[in-house]
Each structure stands twice: as structure tokens, then as C-alpha cells.
């Protein structure tokens, strides 16, 4: 995105970000991932280098199978990097992190636990003090608009509510990083928009660093400070867009000219040759 696009925009977003000075929290330096294949290693991610600042909301869009999910799992410490260096607040990520919460596309709730106990799984697994965890879980449930459903079981909830439970679970241990892998991909369009608004509200209230993987370009633009566009497998960064729209962003922002310009230029990467253009 050319720099003159950013000049005319309100300074609200800039000042909101300026308050917390740009401090890189997650750093990728030549991070690559390959899997062993029949004819030698198969590259899934070409070397990537970028930083994610503290409190920043970054989205990754790209075609299916471009390694977006692999990228997220690397940052989560669920997969080892094949090359390069990946650090979280200065220390190398070499396994699951204390300071990270994850939300997957499906809510992956345990069918035999009610909403509260599903959220508390995080505390049980991490051996956190239960009384404090319970208190925080109830607070999160209230924030997510799930009051009155503490004792409900997953199958009694709608898809959107299930995903809200999984977001509460990811936030229970108050991590500084929230990783989301197409969290709203399975929801209908209306629920999705509502969840986008709520995610923005939660993010603005907590100032977590968020890495969101998504298929939806409008969702990425609507929520993010920066959008990373990835190319086809093996994945590499095709472009990075700074989204300078004022916050909080109402749903109306989606019909504004600036919004359309962002989505159009991101979509442009997908059109030439039917896939991503370098």
C-alpha cells in the first residue's frame, strides 16, 4: 500500500498504536518449515522474516494450503521450525508457551464438560490456582455475553457461542498472545460479523497481541492493524498492508471507500493467474 493512502486518514488509530511504542513481541527471522517427503524435504513455508509488535492485531490471508496454519503452529510452539529463528519476547520458541492462547476453527470443546469446566481446562492443564481461575473464568464468561450458560453443555450452544467459549478458554491464563486459526470460518455470515465486532471489543479492552489466520479478506481488513498476504505453497509473504482505519471500527466501515480500496488491492493478489501473484 502506497504511503499517500495513509496520510489522509484519521490519526486516531495511529495515536492508539503510538501509545504503546512499537516493541516487537514475536520475531520471525528466516523462519522456514519443510516436511520430509519421498524425494527429499518438501517445503511448506519459505523463509519468512517479520515482526509482530506488542498489542498489535495481525491477520494472515492466503490461498488454501499455503502454510498459514503451519505458521500459526510454529508460533504456538506446536511444530519445530526447520530453519531460522522464532522468538517470543526475546526467547526462542522451542515448545508450547505459557504466554499463548489458541483458538481453532472448530471450538474443540469437551462434550462431557459444561461451559465453565471447559474454560477451566486451561487452568487444570497449566496447574494454575483454581479459585482465582474460576473467578477469572466467570469474568470472561460475562465479557463474552455467555452469562447464564455456565452450566450448559457444548451441544446446547450455537456455533457462535461455542466459539466464544473457546475464546474465553484461550484467554483464561491471561496470555499476551492470542493465536486464532480461522476461528469464525464455520459460522454463518451474520454471526461472523457479530463475532468480529466482539473480538474487536475484547481486543481493544485487553490489548493482547493477536495473530489471526483467515480466509476472509473483509474480516482481515476490518480487524487488523496489519494484513499479511501469503503466496501459494510453499508459503511466502506476497505483501504486507498497514490498515489505517480509525478504531473502534463500526460495521459501517466496511462500506467506506478506504475499506473497499484495501480489500480490492488485497484481492488483486488472488486474481492474476487464479491464485496469488508475487
Amino acid at each position: 500500500m502506497s504511503s499517500d493512502d495513509q496520510e489522509g486518514l484519521s490519526s486516531a488509530a495511529a495515536s492508539a498504536r503510538g501509545a504503546t511504542a512499537r516493541r516487537p513481541l514475536i520475531r520471525l527471522c528466516g523462519v522456514a518449515k519443510s516436511y520430509p517427503g519421498k524425494d527429499g524435504p518438501m517445503a511448506s513455508l519459505d523463509p519468512l522474516s517479520f515482526d509482530i509488535d506488542e498489542g498489535e492485531f495481525v491477520s494472515v490471508v492466503g490461498p488454501s494450503g499455503c502454510g498459514k496454519t503451519t505458521l500459526l503452529k510454529l508460533v504456538a510452539g506446536l511444530l519445530p521450525v526447520s530453519a531460522g529463528e522464532l522468538t517470543l519476547s526475546g526467547s526462542r520458541i522451542d515448545g508450547p508457551q505459557r504466554n499463548v492462547g489458541i483458538v481453532f476453527q472448530s471450538a474443540v470443546l469437551l462434550a462431557w464438560r459444561n461451559v465453565l469446566d471447559n474454560i477451566l481446562l486451561q487452568a487444570e492443564m497449566r496447574k494454575l490456582p483454581m479459585a482465582a481461575a474460576r473467578e477469572r473464568a466467570l469474568k470472561l464468561i460475562a465479557t463474552a455475553g455467555l452469562e447464564g450458560f455456565e452450566k450448559s453443555y457444548p451441544w446446547q450452544l450455537s456455533g457462535g457461542m461455542q466459539q466464544r467459549v473457546s475464546i474465553c478458554r484461550a484467554l483464561l491464563h491471561d496470555p499476551s498472545v492470542l493465536l486464532m486459526d480461522e476461528p469464525f470460518g464455520a459460522l454463518d455470515a451474520m454471526t461472523r460479523e457479530k463475532m468480529n465486532l466482539e473480538l474487536q471489543r475484547i481486543w481493544m479492552g485487553s490489548k493482547k497481541t493477536v495473530l489471526l489466520i483467515t480466509h476472509s479478506i473483509p474480516e482481515a481488513v476490518f480487524l487488523s492493524d496489519r494484513v499479511l498476504v501469503m503466496s501459494e505453497r510453499p508459503g511466502s509473504i506476497a505483501a504486507i498492508y498497514d490498515i489505517d482505519l480509525p478504531r473502534p471500527r463500526p460495521l459501517d466501515v466496511m462500506s467506506s471507500a478506504e475499506f473497499a480500496r484495501y480489500t480490492q488491492s488485497i484481492r488483486g493478489h488472488f486474481f492474476t493467474q487464479g491464485s496469488l501473484d508475487h
Binding site: 481453532f104 472448530s106 481446562l121 492443564m125
Partner: peptide, 14 residues
């Protein structure tokens, strides 16, 4: 058991 479920538990340091 779903792969995501296992990943989730691993991410919690289970």
C-alpha cells in the same frame, strides 16, 4: 480424538 483437540491440550502444556 481430533487433531485440534490434541494440539489444544499440547498448547496448554499438558
Amino acid at each position: 480424538v481430533e487433531v485440534d483437540m490434541v494440539d489444544l491440550a499440547r498448547s496448554m502444556g499438558s
